[in-house]
Design a protein around this nucleic acid. Structure first.
Length: 898
RNA sequence: GCGCGGUUAGCUCAGCGGUAGAGCACCUCCCUUACAAGGAGGGGGCCGCAGGUUCGAAUCCUGCACCGCGCACCA
């Protein structure tokens, strides 16, 4: 017998190991079944999983289990990502705590530590995924930096190189001073920060007045090589072509006219620092300006910044330059100026735009097929609102900087001959001018040009997203032409958060199309971010993170999953509060206890072959049976629709409502009448329907709550005539015939209405719950017949002593309820307060008056009657008649009370 | 600045052209032999604001406000 309260811990542990032992989620290419393939967005090996991973994987598991239950050949590939900068940062933090550093350790030793860390971290993450219940094919675990994936990276690099899509060039890149590396454009996030706008006076070289420039970064003025004004700006026309004296440095710089300058912003004059600002870089190119680097890759001022500044940090230099300008009388004014500052997406430090030599992938050509795939419908995004932003991003794509000046990652597979590239060194490599490289994983024996044997590998590594972009096919063995690849590619769906739509999803599409000749997945399901209760992003620094493991321990994995899934509305973020799990936890318990109840009412041994709905003789089915089967059938259809439309929260809601309201609150209660009665066909019918509906509901709930449903299925399956080891093998619920009968449903609804009305009457008149009451009714014959036929329902649910047709006039001293087209009288001599009853009925009369007025109003509207659809007019007419009848009954009753 | 999304019960959100819904929270009663992590009943809404279309608008259109998020070369 089941425990009285569901205790998730032991149940979850039991099934995790049972599933693993059975290799339940392993997939092989199969001729019979249609493949449904999902590759996991590999979590970075930076630590433990957070609640965002929990949502992401719960959603995938939901889809994957759903498809497996319904017979597809499902393959869900597990894995982890080496995570480049993010992971290296974690290790550097550890080293700092040990008073060490990566430089002190040296590249090889550092990588050794990284590999150890990765190993430990991987097992933590995979363990957590298993704990979450994820139906992953554990035999296929992959890592973005393992051997097979390294081969894929090399093959991809080589392919792009040979097509001329990879190049090394000198560009202005986003440099993270803290991480010591270049970043791609999308790895920069913009934060609105409070800043200042400094107005600085640049006098003319000839001693004239000169002009005033406005800047948010005064420290870069040390590297100014011009001032630009708009060519149409009459204020400065006379100065164009003249020179200015750059304060603090004594250098002279020209005034240039450039369209880019907005005359209405600031002073209309812009200082130009080609080395440290992307726009200025372009202005510099247009006007062939020199470029002076005053900030180094370490974020400190260089020697070129001049005496007194060199060696200072950017912030110190800003203060000193501002102070010096003020002292020199050059500072006209400063004003508050909030503006967007680019920050590193990994460490949140301000990005420094720097010019350096980096590797890039040419993107526009690669993006075109991705746009076509979207337009043709080969790739579809859910929700569709992502379609336009995604398309636009692809169309405006810029080249992708793929080299990173860190150690943790795939080393760039390019070698340089020391004699063909004189002066080459690992130090300041990214400042080295045009180099001649030889692509390849292995060090070439000798230089193909000069035969030299001294070769140096590029010290940089690839952007972590480069290997991630290959994931949907690298996991199946590409570039080898494997059977797996042939069967499982393209994958079916990719589930991920919108924060990596461009970073990852778009790049997979482009790489898949380029390298595999087809989309890597046909559906992209984009979910929201889990935020805190107040809608803020969760972060360690804010201290608002919710640990999924703690939630699973406290409430059970199924409840936790259900909480996330039932809030995962398409396109919306989830403001997660811990108390949103209590509902699902209670729901799990409800499910547990309804199964417990059903089992208590079944014989010890199941009948041969189990209970079969098809074998029931229809004559012994009652109204409640037909009704619950209709509700059940409707639930199955709705959940299937919801799942097909990727509306997971709606599916969860449908299941919740069916199990709790329809099944437990009405059907189970009504079944008790037969279950506590004598043995016979009727009892067997109730049992058969309880088993059928409950087992089917367990199956439908399984993808949401895998553990509890597995456990309950195990104890019920024999009664359903099934013998599968695991629920997921048993197939989705099937109904042999159509139970949706509108007539039965509306008859049942009338009975339910009467029950509710009588219960309301009891409650509002404070009838003691234990006291059974008598009820009489009057009204149309067919309604009366319906109620009499189902008198046991009313008696049981509304606690009636008796139910009969009223004879003669309305019984004196009784309370009244209108329902199911009938008037019910409950004699309550001495029990009720008639002032209360009058007030109650008057309130109802007022409500009916209001409704009636509305109907009348509508029907007296000529335009409505003539223009609205006839069916609609009829509906209102019927409604009016109904209200009128009720109203006149209420009036009679009220007057008899007075 | 441009674009997207949101604004419905105290909270989280459904509904998207015909009598305003759910879950949670709240109030009252009940330990009725599956479940108090439960049951029954109840209160609570100018459906952001202003116009328009329509017989009829929470729902469609146009503005506006506020919130959130993208994108962008405001120094």
């Amino acid at each position: 017998m089941l425990e009285k309260v569901y205790n998730p811990g032991p149940v979850e542990a039991k099934w995790v190991s049972a599933w693993r032992r059975a290799r339940l989620f392993h997939a092989e290419p199969s001729a019979e079944a249609r493949p449904f393939v999902v590759v996991i967005p590999p979590p970075n090996v930076t630590g433990a999983l957070h609640i965002g991973h929990a949502l992401n994987n719960a959603l995938q598991d939901l889809m994957v289990r759903w498809r497996r239950l319904n017979g597809d050949a499902v393959c869900w590939v597990p894995g982890t990502d080496h995570g480049g900068i993010a992971t290296q940062n974690v290790m550097e933090k550890q080293l700092r705590a040990e008073k060490g550093s990566r430089q002190a350790l040296g590249r090889e030793k550092f990588l050794e530590r990284m590999r150890e860390w990765t190993l430990a971290c991987k097992s933590t993450i995979l363990g957590q995924l298993e704990r979450l219940g994820c139906a992953l094919d554990w035999d296929r675990e992959a890592f973005t930096m393992d051997e097979p994936r390294a081969r894929a990276v090399l093959a991809a690099f080589k392919h792009l190189w040979e097509k001329g899509l990879i190049y090394r060039g000198e560009r202005m890149v986003n440099w993270c001073v803290r991480c010591g590396t270049a970043l791609s454009d999308i790895e920069v996030e913009y934060e609105e920060r409070k800043g200042k706008l400094w107005h600085i006076h640049y006098p003319s070289a000839d001693g004239g007045r000169g002009l005033v420039v406005a800047t948010t970064r005064p420290e870069t003025m040390l590297g100014d090589t011009a001032v630009a004004v708009n060519p149409k700006d009459s204020r400065y026309a006379a100065l164009v072509g003249k020179t200015l004296k750059l304060p603090l440095t004594g250098r002279t710089i020209p005034v240039k006219a450039d369209e880019h300058v907005d005359p209405s912003f600031g002073t209309g004059a812009v200082k130009v620092t080609p080395a440290h600002d992307p726009n200025d870089f372009e202005i510099g190119q247009r006007h062939s300006l020199p470029s002076i680097k005053v900030i180094g890759p370490d974020g400190k001022m260089t020697a070129d910044a001049g005496e007194g500044y060199s060696g200072l940090s950017r912030e110190q230099a800003r203060d000193k330059v501002a102070a010096d300008l003020r002292d020199g009388g050059f500072l006209e004014k400063t004003e508050e100026h909030p503006h967007a500052v680019g920050v590193c997406y990994r460490c949140n430090q301000a990005i420094e735009p720097l010019v350096s030599w980096q590797w890039f992938v040419k993107m526009p050509k690669l993006a075109e097929p991705a746009v076509r795939a979207l337009d043709r419908g080969d790739f579809r995004l859910f929700p569709e609102s992502w379609r336009n932003p995604y398309r636009r991003w692809l169309q405006e794509i810029r080249d992708w900087c793929i080299s990173r000046q860190i150690w943790w990652g795939h080393r760039i597979p390019v070698w340089y001959c020391v004699s063909c590239n004189p002066g080459i060194s690992e130090k300041d490599f990214h400042q080295a001018a045009d180099l001649k490289g030889i692509p390849g994983a292995e060090k070439p024996q000798r230089c193909p040009d000069c035969g030299g044997t001294s070769l140096l590998q590029d010290p940089d590594v690839l952007d972590t997203w480069f290997s991630s972009a290959l994931w949907p096919f690298s996991v199946f063995g590409w570039p080898e032409k494997t059977k797996d690849l042939e069967y499982f590619y393209p994958t079916s769906a990719l589930v991920t958060g919108y924060e990596i739509l461009y970073l990852w999803v778009a790049r997979m599409q482009m790489m898949g199309l380029e390298l595999m000749g087809g989309v890597p997945f046909s559906t992209g399901i984009i979910h929201g971010i889990v935020r805190d209760k107040a809608g803020k992003k969760m972060s360690k620094s804010l201290g608002n993170v919710v640990d999924p493991l703690v939630m699973m321990d406290k409430y059970g994995t199924d409840a936790f999953r259900f909480s996330l899934l039932s809030q995962a509305h398409p396109g919306r973020d989830i403001p997660f509060a811990e108390d949103s799990i209590t509902g699902p936890r209670n729901f799990a318990n409800k499910l547990w206890n309804s199964t417990r109840f059903v089992l208590m009412n079944l014989p010890a041994a199941p009948p041969a072959g189990g209970y079969r709905l098809e074998s029931l003789s229809h004559c012994c089915l009652e109204l409640a049976d037909r009704w619950v089967l209709a509700q059940y059938q409707g639930m199955l259809a709705r959940v299937r629709e919801n799942m097909d439309a990727h509306e997971f929260a709606a599916a969860a809601d449908t299941l919740y409502g069916f199990l709790w309201d329809s099944f437990c609150d009405w059907y189970v209660e009504l079944a008790k009448i037969r279950l506590t009665g004598i043995d016979g066909e009727e009892k067997e019918a109730a049992r058969a329907i309880l088993v059928e509906v409950l087992v089917g509901t367990l199956k439908m709930l399984h993808p949401f709550m895998p553990f509890i449903t597995e456990e309950l299925y195990a104890s019920l399956k024999a009664f359903a005539g099934q013998s599968h080891d695991f629920l997921i093998q048993s197939g989705g619920p099937v109904l042999e015939r159509d139970w949706q009968d509108g007539e039965n449903v509306s008859r049942m609804e009338a009975v339910m209405e009467a029950v509710v009305a009588l219960r309301t009457l009891r409650s509002q008149l404070n009838v003691p719950p234990g006291l059974k009451i008598q009820a009489h009714f009057e009204g149309p014959k067919d309604r009366g017949g319906l109620v009499l036929e189902h008198a046991p329902y009313l008696k049981y649910l509304a606690r009636l002593e008796s139910l009969s047709e009223a004879e003669g006039a309305k019984p004196a001293r009784s309370a009244t309820a209108l329902a199911a087209g009938l008037t019910f009288y409950v004699p309550l001599e001495g029990l009720i307060d008639f002032d209360k009853e009058r007030a109650r009925l008057e309130k109802e009369a007022r409500e009916i008056d209001a409704q009636l007025a509305r109907c009348k109003n509508q029907l007296s509207n000529e335009a409505f009657v003539s223009r609205a659809p006839q069916a609609e007019v009829e509906t209102i007419r019927r409604r009016q008649a109904d209200f009128e009848q009720k109203q006149s009954r209420l009036r009679e009753i009220l007057s008899s009370l007075n």
